[in-house]
């Protein structure tokens, strides 16, 4: 039985037994290569669930949709390892109760889908550890290497050009499971911290503030990068920040549901006298 079929069967069982009220997965998209988020609440609809190498979107952000988990019922969700890490962070940051989340874990290598064993988030710690230890994939990207080699001035002009394309559509924020703030800093206007205008300064402010807010929290799922309609390579920023945090604090975001948030915790014996 394919993993797709196994997971359909499991979804059917969970829904018919009332163990979960909803399964968040992937369904057929507009074109043969597209998959779209799908919300299944009836056991009769599980056949619509799909699982293949085109299932890329990190669906964990839907778990914190307003009101979804407030009835304390369980919700099942299809997640890749990055999505599972995101659930850990959401739990660590008190955005959800991990007990309510039933995971249909999977990973894709080449175009082969593999099932990940486990149901609850804590059962995937080995998978997450092996990712932490494995070579970071994005390093292989030529562009990343190229930027690393640039002088600060060259790097600044690279990002200046990229951010000039930004239209402040906030698709990056909306697509990000970690951007759950009910009122984002750019939407606060008393005082207005960040310019709302999408001019060079406003675009810089926005992208830099987001990079900071995601440091140590980003799981490099790529949702923001894929969502950006003007194709700003946001993955490069995320990856750089993740490396920075790993190097400085040995912090790999989303290791466990009790992991301390790296930039929101401090130790009395910290060697630094200043906290950002």
């Amino acid at each position: 039985m394919s993993i797709e079929e196994q997971y359909r069967t499991r979804a059917k069982e969970l829904l018919s037994g009332g163990a979960v009220k909803m399964v968040i997965g992937y369904g057929k998209g507009t074109t043969p290569s597209r998959r779209r988020p799908l919300f299944i609440t009836s056991p009769d609809d599980v056949e619509r669930l799909m699982l293949d190498d085109a299932c890329i979107t990190n669906l964990s952000g839907y778990l914190v949709s307003e009101g979804l988990l407030s009835d304390e019922k369980r919700v099942a969700v299809f997640l890749r390892p990055e999505g599972i890490r995101a659930v850990n962070i959401l739990a660590a940051e008190s955005q959800l109760d991990a007990e309510q989340i039933v995971i249909f874990g999977f990973d894709v290598s080449g175009n082969e889908v593999q099932a990940l064993k486990g149901i609850h988030v804590e059962e995937f710690s080995d998978v997450i550890r092996s990712i932490k230890e494995g070579a970071p994939e994005a390093d292989e990207e030529e562009l990343f290497e190229k930027i690393e080699k640039m002088s600060p001035q060259e790097r600044f002009s690279f990002w200046q050009e990229e951010f000039a394309k930004c239209i402040k559509c906030y698709a990056c924020r909306q697509a990000c499971p970690m951007c759950y703030c009910r009122r984002c800093i750019v939407d606060s206007n008393q005082p207005q911290w960040i310019n709302t205008s999408s001019h060079s300064l406003g675009n810089f402010e926005w992208n830099i503030v987001r990079a900071f807010h995601l440091s140590g929290r980003c799981v490099e799922c790529g949702n923001c990068d894929r969502a950006c309609p003007v194709n700003i390579p946001l993955r490069l920023i995320n990856h750089r920040m993740a490396e920075e945090v790993l190097g400085a604090f040995d912090h790999f975001a989303g290791m466990s549901k009790t992991q301390e948030p790296v930039l929101a915790s401090f130790k009395k014996d910290d060697s630094e006298t200043f906290i950002l």
């Binding site: 952000g61 559509c169 698709a171 909306q174």
Partner: peptide
């Protein structure tokens, strides 16, 4: 609209 994440990609393009 359940899956709509409420960005402005569609309106701005």
């Amino acid at each position: 609209s359940m899956r709509c994440i409420g960005c402005a990609s569609c309106t701005y393009l």
